Computed example of a mutant assay.
Amino acid sequence: MSDALNPHRRPARTPRFPDGPQPDPAGSHHERRIRSFQPRRSRVTAGQADAIERLWPLWGLDIDGRRTLDLTELFGNDHPVVLEIGFGMGEATAQMAGDDPGTNILAVDVHTPGQGNLLNLAEKGRLTNVRVANGDAIILLREMIAPDALAGLRVYFPDPWPKKRHHKRRLIQPEFLDLAATRLRPGAVLHCATDWEPYAEQMLEVLTAHPRFVNTRSDGGFAPRPGFRPLTRFEGQGLDKGHVVRDLLFLRV
Score class of each variant (00 low, 15 high):
Phe157Thr: 02
Gly65Pro: 04
Ser2Asp: 15
Glu91Val: 11
Asn77Tyr: 09
Gly27Met: 07
Pro80Asp: 11
Gly125Tyr: 08
Ser218Thr: 15
Trp59Val: 13
Phe234Glu: 08
Met144His: 03
His8Thr: 14
His210Cys: 08
Asn215Val: 02
Thr45Phe: 00
Leu58Glu: 15
Phe234Asp: 07
Lys163Gly: 04
Pro186Tyr: 01
Ala223Leu: 09
Leu231Phe: 11
Phe87Asp: 00
Val44Leu: 05
Ala97Trp: 01
Gln95Arg: 15
Val82Leu: 10
Phe37Glu: 06
Lys241Phe: 07
Ala12His: 13
Asp64Cys: 10
Phe157His: 10
Pro57Thr: 08
Val245Asn: 11
Lys163Asp: 04
Pro15Arg: 02
Ala149Leu: 01
Glu197His: 14
His210Trp: 09
Leu61Trp: 02
Ile52Gly: 02
Ala137Lys: 00
Glu205Tyr: 11
Leu69Pro: 08
Gly152Val: 00
Leu61Cys: 09
Cys192His: 12
Leu55Thr: 05
Ile52Gln: 02
Leu179Cys: 07
Met89Gly: 05
Arg40Trp: 11
Asp70Ala: 07
Ala51Ile: 04
Ile34Phe: 13
Ala46Ile: 14
His29Ile: 08
Arg212Met: 14
Leu140Tyr: 02
Arg33Met: 10
Asp195Ile: 06
Lys241Gln: 15
Glu53Met: 09
Asp136Gln: 01
Gly227Phe: 10
Gly20Met: 04
Gly86Pro: 06
Ala122Leu: 03
Pro21Cys: 08
Arg66Asp: 13
Asp19Cys: 12
Pro147His: 05
Gly238Ser: 07
Ile63Lys: 07
Leu119Val: 04
Phe213Glu: 01
Val132Cys: 03
Pro18Ser: 03
Thr103Gly: 06
Pro21Asn: 04
Gln22Val: 08
Asp219Ala: 09
Ala51Cys: 09
Glu175Met: 10
Pro23Ser: 05
Asp50Val: 12
Lys163Val: 06
Ile85Lys: 00
Leu69Phe: 12
Leu177Arg: 02
Gly76Met: 06
Gly88Asn: 00
Lys164Val: 12
Ser36Gln: 05
Leu177Ala: 00
Arg16Lys: 14
Pro186Gln: 01
Gln115Met: 15
Gly90Thr: 04
Arg229Leu: 03
Phe234Leu: 10
Arg41Glu: 13
Asp148Phe: 08
Phe37Cys: 04
Glu31Phe: 12
Gly47Glu: 15
Arg217Leu: 10
Pro80Lys: 06
Asp70Val: 05
Ile52Glu: 01
Arg142Pro: 04
Gln237His: 14
Val214Pro: 00
Arg233His: 14
Thr182Trp: 03
Gly102Glu: 15
Leu5Trp: 13
Trp56His: 04
Ala200Tyr: 00
His29Lys: 12
Pro7Phe: 05
Pro230His: 00
Glu84His: 02
Gly27Asn: 10
Asp62Phe: 06
Pro23Arg: 03
Arg43Gly: 09
Glu175Asn: 12
Glu84Tyr: 01
Pro147Ala: 09
Thr216His: 07
Val155Pro: 01
Lys163Ala: 07
Ser218Asp: 15
Pro160Lys: 07
Arg169Leu: 05
Gly135Thr: 05
Asp148Val: 08
Ser218Tyr: 08
Leu248Ser: 04
Arg54His: 11
Thr128Val: 12
Asp195Arg: 02
Leu150Asp: 01
Arg41Lys: 14
Asp100Val: 10
Gly60Gln: 03
Ala200Lys: 00
